[in-house]
């Protein structure tokens, strides 16, 4: 289950998307999200779908990898689906049982929300799948750096994110090992009521936290030994530079937004 979360994982391959400046991609994802929330008609959804498919194709990340990232979201999706299905009051009634009432509007809205959520997760996972965490944090640092003047610690935020990402796999492995070790000592994590179950987590959580603190302490010492001194005067191995792919991505983004607006205008004008 934990391994299924592709959000935050990096898929190492080469593609135009991998080459792109992380800043372009971060802004791109924001634009993409805006476009998704603009979409309302079938044609507009088709446009978003086409664009998402195209980007996935260009990214060279296998589809199976992206769909796996959706698995943990099934519960959230079912919840939104149900919420929209039962809570929409308008439209023609299709089905009624006790206090539940399903209308055609509700069905359309539920499907739309679910599709939107799927696209949203796919698009944002693509950002982390094609951007190494260090590039991503570098991009965030640069995008936030104008805010430094107002006291936003952009370097520290980026450093914290990067270290967190670095240690996620290590801590997951550790968790797995601790669970197995305590199971071997007869620990039972599955039976009992909620309170008992929460209590039964202590043998996992205490070693996990103690271990995380130990690691943090050692890492801090190692970083100090390598002359870490905060963000001032630092240079970076990774070059952030707008290249042709970035210009092309920018063009694609403008095209997408314009197409979306055009579709909306056409619909309001009654053409489609």
């Amino acid at each position: 289950m934990l391994r299924d979360i592709t959000l935050g994982q990096y898929y190492n391959t080469s593609s135009p998307l991998h080459e792109m400046d992380p800043r372009t991609k971060i802004i791109g994802v924001i634009v993409y999200m805006a476009v998704l929330f603009m979409a309302s008609s079938l044609w507009e959804y088709m446009l978003a779908a086409l664009f998402t498919a195209l980007v996935i194709k260009i990214s060279n990340v296998p589809m199976s990898f992206i769909t796996r990232g959706l698995k943990p979201l099934v519960i959230i999706m079912c919840f939104t689906l149900a919420l929209n299905l039962f809570m929409t009051g308008t439209g023609n009634e299709l089905f009624r049982w006790w206090i539940f009432r399903i209308t055609d509007d509700g069905v359309v809205l539920a499907v739309k929300m679910a599709v939107r959520l799927v696209f949203l997760v796919m698009g944002t996972s693509l950002l982390t799948l094609t951007t190494s965490p260090i590039a991503l944090t570098g991009g965030i640092e640069r995008l936030l750096s104008p805010l430094r003047r107002f006291g936003v610690p952009s370097h520290e935020i980026a450093m914290m994110m990067s270290i967190a990402l670095r240690f996620i796999p290590t801590l997951m492995e550790e968790t797995d090992k601790i669970i197995k070790a305590q199971t071997s000592r007869g620990a039972d994590f599955e039976s009992g009521n909620l309170i008992q179950r929460v209590k039964s987590m202590t043998p996992i959580l205490v070693p996990l936290f103690v271990g995380a603190f130990r690691r943090a302490e050692e890492l801090a010492m190692a970083m100090e030994c390598r002359c870490y001194n905060g963000g001032d005067g630092r240079t970076s191995l990774r070059e952030l530079k707008f290249r042709r792919v970035d210009a092309m991505a920018l063009a694609a983004g403008i095209l997408l937004v314009s197409a979306m607006i055009a579709l909306k205008v056409l619909r309001n004008g009654g053409v489609i």
Binding site: I178, K180, A181, S184, G186, P203, P207
Partner: peptide
């Protein structure tokens, strides 16, 4: 079967040595 993992000291969690040994 009792399995002692590598670096088993990383799985200690109780407040006292006695209680940790008593867990199993």
């Amino acid at each position: 079967v009792g399995l002692v993992f590598q670096y088993p000291e990383h799985q200690l969690f109780e407040e006292t040595v006695y209680r940790d040994i008593a867990f199993g």
